[in-house]
């Protein structure tokens, strides 16, 4: 009988530079379901793990940004394809993590898959929407285009473990940024399973680095890290972390900051255009003379 079978359980680890290491600190913390029942131990990332993740993200950034927009679109679409294939697994994990009925968890997973498809389609469009020719008063060809900011550190939403994570992560990848993401602290397991999808899709190693652990411990390290270019604090809402201090730390190298909202957004409604993509873009303007 199938019910007699003892299941083989998974060790949940970090996702760092395309690999799945444990925390260098050797620490873990308990993840429970919404009713407090033990689900698994997750790796409790350390300051050193954060630094390693930033190194991996920096190393991968130029290559990811140099991929063609069409290629990045296909890679992000591939994530949706693989998510679809593991839909049941994600429904079960999201249901357990968030305490949702199967029906509600299914709608969260479907929305997350849709979100990857949505952003896959933006890669070769946002530059035309945001950029353009500037009609300067002189004989110059003058063009403005959005470019990725670089390495973005994001705190993933605490409540919406998969959809919220996707809503924050996918748009920052569109332009060619690479990411260090701290997963929802208490609902971390869907994030780690998502990293398995990323690892087996065509997203190059290091483009997404996913850490589990205590947000109050990890966020300040990311906010003060001089090789992080931008900071998304969306997921700090509902945590104990001092976001004012994070913003202060971010000033040390003039990071671009998306502040923490008063309440965690309802991600179900869908993204508001390219706003999250452009929050992590820089406008580059190129002047070239016209002449014979």
């Amino acid at each position: 009988m199938a019910t007699d079978r003892l299941d083989v359980r998974k060790t949940y680890k970090l996702y760092l530079g395309g690999r799945f290491p444990r925390s260098e600190s050797g620490r873990t913390f308990e993840i429970t379901d919404s009713k407090g029942r033990f689900l698994a131990n997750a790796a409790r990332a350390s300051r050193k793990d954060v630094r390693d993740a930033v190194v991996a993200a920096r190393k991968a950034q130029q290559g990811w940004a140099a991929a063609t927009a069409y290629n990045r679109g296909q890679v992000l679409y591939r994530v949706a394809e693989l998510l679809e294939g593991r839909r049941d697994q994600f429904v079960a994990e999201v249901a357990a993590a968030e305490g949702l009925s199967t029906r509600k968890a299914t709608s969260q997973v479907d929305a997350a898959i849709d979100r990857w498809v949505h952003y896959a389609g933006w890669t070769d469009k946002y530059a035309q929407v945001d950029g353009g020719l500037n009609p300067v008063a002189g004989p110059y060809f003058d063009l403005s285009v959005p470019e990725p900011t670089g390495v973005v550190a994001a705190i993933a939403p605490q409540r919406s473990s998969l959809l919220g994570l996707t809503a924050v992560l996918a748009p920052l990848l569109v332009s060619g940024n690479t990411a260090v993401v701290v997963a929802s602290e208490r609902r971390a397991l869907p994030a780690i399973t998502l990293s398995e999808v990323l690892a087996t899709s065509d997203v190059p190693g290091g483009v997404v680095n996913l850490l589990t652990g205590h947000v109050t411990e990890l966020a300040p390290v990311l906010a003060g890290h001089l090789d992080v270019d931008a900071l998304d604090l969306t997921g700090c809402t509902g945590t104990e972390v001092d976001t004012e201090e994070l913003e202060r730390l971010a000033a040390e190298n003039v990071k671009r900051v998306v502040p923490a909202p008063a309440e965690e957004p309802a991600f179900d409604a869908g993204p508001a255009g390219p706003a999250r993509i452009l929050a992590f873009c820089e406008t580059k303007t190129v002047w070239h003379p016209k002449g014979t």
Binding site: N134, P135, E282, T283, K284, V286, W287, H288, P289
Partner: peptide
């Protein structure tokens, strides 16, 4: 934020200016 190709220090109201 601004790259001047075979020119330099050009500014125009229509042309976005600012840094990386």
């Amino acid at each position: 934020g601004v790259v001047w190709a075979n020119t330099f220090n050009r500014l125009d109201p229509t042309s976005p200016f600012g840094g990386y």
